[in-house]
Design a protein around this nucleic acid. Structure first.
Length: 811
RNA sequence: GCCGGGAUGGCGGAAUGGCAGACGCAGCGGACUUAAAAUCCGCCGGAGAAAUCUGUGUGGGUUCGAAUCCCUCUCCCGGCACCA
C-alpha cells in the first residue's frame, strides 16, 4: 500500500531540504533573463492574517511560473518596520519599540516561511535597522542638496491622538489614516519633499502598465487645472501691495464679479481689514481655525463669511469690488483668493444670496429671458454684459479674455495643482532620524555623510507630548555644528515611514552593501520591478511617493530609470464581517491553524481558487475541504498503480492534457488563477475515470501524471515535489521547465455544432471543421429535435458561424 | 455631488456577442460499513408528468442571437469631495 498524503510531514521535509540546498538562492550572475517580482512588504504589526497571505500566495505562484519559464527570478521579502504602533506599544506596555518590532518580525517571518514561497531570505530587508536607515538618511541628504527637501513653516495636519503631523495623503475624510481621530490644523516648522515639482511628470504613465483605477486616483490627487491668474487692483493707503491675485478656470466670467473672497488665512486679510470690521473679521478667523477639516470642508455646511471693509477694482470694467473672507476658500490652493461670480458658480451664488450681493448674468443660458437666475448657470453660453466680448461663445471667451489680460499685463495663464508638497517629518521616536543639525550661527546644517547613520538613541522616554521623544534626550540633541564647531542641536523629528519604503526595492538588489545604498551594477541588472502587487489603498501614498522619489534620484544620476514598477497589479481585499481585516478591529483570521490542520498547499490552492485575485471578498473557509479532497485524489492518482487494459483512450486524454497545459499557461499570463485550478481539477477528474477503466496505455498515463505535476508545481509546491520524487523523477521539480502544449492536440478536425432555431438552442451535432454553411443547414434541418420547429415554416435566413453554430431563422 | 468598479443558483464563482451556471462548497439520493467518518457513484436555478416554457439587479434598445454592447433606474463597494 502506498503511503497516504500527509501534508504536514512532506511540507516540513521539503521546506527544510530547499533551505539546505539553497534551492531558491538568487544568483545575480545567472545568464537567464531577469524577472523582478515584488509584493508590497508588510508593516510589522505582529501577525500575518489571511489577508496578507492573499497578497503573498498568488505572487509566489506567478513568480514560480516565471522561474519555470526560464527567468532568473528575484522575489524578495522584507519588513516595513518603522511606525507609530511600535511606539504606542512602548507607551502602553513599556516595551521598547525595537524589541517589540523585532519580536513581531520573528513571528511574521516564521509565518511567511510556512507559505513555502521562493523568497531568498538572504536578501531580507528591515527598514528600522541602522544598516538600512543609514541609506534612507543618505537619500534625504541627496534630496536636501537638490533643494527637493526643505524646511518650512506651514499650517499642517495634526493628529491629536498620534501626537504628530500627517501628510495630506494620510488624512482620509478629515481623519487620521491610522487611528481615525479628527485632524486639526497647526502651524509648525516641518520638513517637506518637493513632490509638486514633479506634478506634471507624475501625470504621465507612458511605458508602465498600471490599473486604470490607480492612474485615475493619482491624476485626481495631483489635480492639474489649467486656468488664469487675474490681478485685481488694490489702492489702500496702509497696504503696500497694489494688487490681489486670484486663480480662475473661468476668466470668461470676469465681468460678472461682484465680490472677492479671500481665505481667512490669506496674508492680506489683516492688513486690509478696516477698523469697523476688525472685530468681526478676527472672530471669523478664530472660528475657522478652531474647526477641524471635516467641519470646515463639509459641503453641507452653509457658506458664510465676513466683509473686510476693503475694496479692490476689477480692471476690465473698472468696478469697485468688495473684499470678503470665507472659509470655503482654501489658503493652500491657487492664490488663496477667488473672484466671486455668483451668476455662474454655485458656491458664489449661495453666498451672494445669503448676503444680498448682486448677481449679474454675463453668460447667457440658452433662451435666456434677461431675468435674474434662480440658480447658478455654470454651462457654456454667449457672453453678455462683458464689454467688447459680448456675443463671444464663453468657451472661446476663456482664451480671448486671457489673451486680453496678458496683453494688458493684468493676468497670465497658469496651471494649479491640488497636490501639495509631501510633509515628511514626524514628532515621534520610531522613525529614521532626520540627518540635520540646527546651529544658532550657521542655521540648517546637513549631517556630513561620514557621520551617518544618525543613530536612534536606545534610551528614550516614550511620553506622548506632541514633541519628539528625541527632544528630551540630551545626549542625542546636543552636538557640535559640523560647520563651525559651535554648540548646536540635532533635528529631533523623524522621517515618515513612507520615505523608507520609497527605496526598499532598490535595496533588495544588493542588501548587504555596507558602503553604499546599493551596488549600481546589480541595480542595473534587476531594476525596474517587472511585476508589483499590493493593495489599492496605497494609490496616492506609497505608490505616488515612490514614483516621485525614483524620478528625483534619476535626475541626480543615482538610477537610470524614471519609473520603479513597470507593471502594477492590485489584488482584492479579504473581508471579515464586511470590513478589512485588521488587528485593531479584532477581525483577523490567522492562517497558522489552517496550515497546522490541512497543510499549506491546501491553503495556497484555496486562496487561488476563491475567485479572481483582483476581486478579494468575504472570507469563508467552508470550501477548503474541496481543495483537500482534490489534493488527496491527486495523491492517489499519482501513487496508485495504474493498470492499463487498452490504449483506446490515449488520443482523448492527450487532447485534454494539452488543452489543460494551454489553459493553465494562458490563465497564468492573464492572472486568472481560479480558472487555472478549475482546469487542473477537470483534468484530474477525467484521469480518475481513465484510471478506473484503464483505457490508456501506461506510457500515456505516466506522461500525463508527469505533466500534471509540473502544472501543479507553482501552486502547490510541496505535494508536487513529493509526488515528483515518488514517481521516480529527478529532484527538484522546481528546477524543471514549464510544459508546452502541442498544437496538434488542441486543434481538431471535428467540433460540436450548436443548432439554433430563431436563436434558441435546439440540438447539437458533431461536424467536420470544414463543413460549409449549406451542408450544416442540411444536417441541422434533418435533426429530429429541430424538425418540429422548422416544418411548415419559411426559412428567412441562416446564420452560420464556422466552428461554432448555425442559427436557422424561420417565420 | 463627482469619478471608478460591481450585481449571475442556497454560497464562492465560470462564460466578454453564439450551448448560462464550468470548477468547487452546501444539500439530496445511493454504494461501502455493525455504525459513523473517510471514500466512491448519481442528482442538484425555477415551473412542469413530459414535451416544453422560463431565468444573469430594474425597465427599454441594438442584433438572426445579449449575462456580455447602448440608454434608464435601483442597490452595493472603492476613491475624491467647497480645488474656484
Amino acid at each position: 500500500m502506498p503511503e497516504k498524503y500527509n501534508p504536514q510531514a512532506i511540507e516540513k521535509k521539503w521546506q527544510q531540504k530547499w533551505t539546505d540546498d539553497e534551492l531558491y538562492k538568487v544568483r545575480d550572475d545567472a545568464p537567464r533573463p531577469k524577472w523582478y517580482a515584488l509584493t508590497m512588504f508588510p508593516y510589522t504589526s505582529g501577525d500575518l492574517h489571511i489577508g496578507h497571505w492573499y497578497n503573498n500566495v498568488p505572487s509566489d505562484v506567478l513568480a514560480r511560473h516565471k522561474r519555470m519559464l526560464g527567468y532568473n527570478v528575484l522575489h524578495p521579502y522584507g519588513f516595513d518596520a518603522f511606525g507609530l504602533p511600535a511606539e504606542n506599544a512602548a507607551i502602553r506596555q513599556g516595551i521598547h519599540p525595537f524589541k517589540w518590532t523585532m519580536q513581531n518580525i520573528d513571528n511574521m517571518r516564521r509565518q511567511v516561511k510556512s507559505i513555502g514561497a521562493i523568497y531568498d531570505w538572504d536578501r531580507e530587508v528591515i527598514t528600522c535597522l541602522p544598516e538600512y536607515y543609514k541609506w534612507t538618511q543618505w537619500f534625504f541628504l541627496r534630496l536636501y542638496e537638490k533643494d527637493l527637501a526643505y524646511y518650512g513653516t506651514a499650517p499642517v495636519n495634526w493628529c491629536p491622538k498620534c501626537q504628530s503631523v500627517l501628510a495630506n495623503e494620510q488624512v482620509e475624510d478629515g481623519k487620521c489614516w491610522r487611528c481615525e481621530s479628527d485632524v486639526v490644523k497647526r502651524d509648525l516648522a516641518q520638513w517637506l519633499f518637493r513632490i509638486t515639482k514633479y506634478a506634471d511628470e507624475l501625470l504621465n504613465f507612458d511605458g508602465i502598465d498600471w490599473p486604470e483605477r490607480i492612474k485615475i486616483m493619482q491624476r485626481n490627487w495631483i489635480g492639474r487645472s489649467e486656468g488664469t491668474e487675474i490681478s485685481f487692483a488694490l489702492d489702500h493707503p496702509s497696504v503696500a501691495e497694489k494688487e490681489i491675485k486670484i486663480f480662475t478656470t473661468r476668466p470668461d466670467t470676469v465681468f460678472g464679479v461682484t465680490f472677492m473672497v479671500l481665505a481667512p488665512e490669506h496674508p492680506l486679510v489683516v492688513k486690509l481689514t478696516t477698523p469697523e470690521q476688525k472685530a468681526a473679521v478676527q472672530a471669523y478667523i478664530a472660528k475657522s481655525r478652531k474647526m477641524t477639516d471635516i467641519e470646515r470642508l463639509s459641503t453641507d455646511k452653509e457658506k458664510d463669511g465676513v466683509f473686510t471693509g476693503a475694496y479692490c477694482v476689477n480692471r476690465l470694467n473698472n468696478t469697485k469690488v468688495p473684499i470678503w473672507i470665507a472659509d470655503y476658500v482654501l489658503a493652500s490652493y491657487g492664490t488663496g483668493a477667488v473672484m466671486a461670480v455668483p451668476a455662474h458658480d454655485e458656491r458664489d451664488f449661495a453666498f451672494a444670496k445669503k448676503y444680498k450681493l448682486p448677481i449679474p448674468v454675463v453668460i447667457a443660458p440658452p433662451d435666456w429671458d434677461g431675468k435674474a437666475l434662480r440658480e447658478a448657470y455654470i454651462e457654456p453660453g454667449k457672453m453678455v454684459n462683458s464689454g467688447q466680448f459680448d456675443g463671444t461663445d464663453s468657451e472661446k471667451g476663456i482664451t480671448a479674455v486671457s489673451e486680453y489680460l496678458e496683453e494688458k499685463g493684468w493676468g497670465k495663464r497658469t496651471i494649479s495643482y491640488k497636490i501639495r508638497d509631501w510633509l515628511v517629518s514626524r514628532q515621534r521616536y520610531w522613525g529614521a532620524p532626520i540627518p540635520i543639525i540646527h546651529c544658532p550661527k550657521c542655521g540648517v546644517v546637513p549631517v556630513p555623510e561620514k557621520d551617518l547613520p544618525v543613530l536612534l538613541p536606545e534610551d528614550a522616554e516614550f511620553k506622548p507630548t506632541g514633541e519628539s521623544p528625541l527632544k528630551y534626550n540630551e545626549k542625542f540633541v546636543n552636538v557640535k555644528c559640523p560647520k563651525c564647531g559651535g554648540a548646536a542641536k540635532r533635528e529631533t523629528d523623524t522621517l515618515d515611514g513612507f520615505v523608507c519604503s520609497c527605496w526598499y526595492m532598490l535595496r533588495y538588489t544588493s542588501p548587504h552593501e555596507n558602503n553604499r545604498a546599493f551596488d549600481p551594477a546589480k541595480l542595473k541588472k534587476w531594476m525596474p520591478v517587472d511585476f508589483y502587487s499590493g493593495g489599492a489603498e496605497h494609490a496616492v501614498m506609497h505608490l505616488l511617493y515612490t514614483r516621485f522619489f525614483t524620478k528625483a534620484i534619476c535626475d541626480m544620476g543615482i538610477v537610470d530609470f524614471r519609473e520603479p514598477f513597470l507593471r502594477l497589479f492590485n489584488q482584492g481585499i479579504i473581508l471579515m464581517g464586511h470590513s478589512k481585516m485588521s488587528k485593531s478591529k479584532g477581525n483577523v483570521v490567522n492562517p497558522d491553524n489552517y496550515v497546522a490542520e490541512l497543510g499549506v498547499d491546501t491553503v495556497r490552492a484555496y486562496m487561488m481558487f476563491l475567485g479572481p485575485w483582483e476581486q478579494g471578498g468575504e472570507w469563508d473557509d467552508s470550501g477548503m475541504s474541496g481543495i483537500t479532497r482534490w489534493l488527496n485524489r491527486t495523491w492517489t492518482l499519482a501513487t496508485d498503480e495504474y493498470k492499463s487494459s487498452s490504449a483506446d483512450g490515449d488520443e482523448e486524454l492527450m487532447r485534454l492534457l494539452h488543452h489543460t497545459v494551454k489553459k493553465a499557461s494562458e490563465d497564468l499570463d492573464k492572472i486568472r488563477l481560479n480558472t487555472m485550478i478549475s482546469a487542473l481539477m477537470e483534468l484530474t477528474n477525467y484521469m480518475g475515470k481513465v484510471k478506473e477503466s484503464g483505457s490508456v496505455s501506461v506510457n500515456t498515463w505516466n506522461e500525463t501524471i508527469k505533466t500534471l505535476l509540473l502544472l501543479l508545481a507553482p501552486s502547490v509546491p510541496h505535494i508536487s515535489e513529493e509526488l515528483w520524487q515518488i514517481t521516480g523523477n529527478k529532484y527538484s521539480i522546481h528546477n524543471q521547465d514549464w510544459p508546452k502544449w502541442d498544437e496538434k492536440y488542441v486543434t481538431s478536425d471535428e467540433f460540436t455544432l450548436v443548432v439554433q432555431v430563431n436563436g434558441k438552442l435546439r440540438d447539437r451535432l458533431t461536424a467536420s471543421v470544414s463543413v460549409t454553411g449549406d451542408e450544416a443547414k442540411k444536417l441541422a434541418m434533418g435533426l429530429e429535435r429541430v424538425k418540429p420547429f422548422v416544418e411548415g415554416k419559411q426559412v428567412v435566413k441562416v446564420i452560420f458561424v464556422p466552428k461554432k453554430l448555425i442559427n436557422i431563422v424561420v417565420k
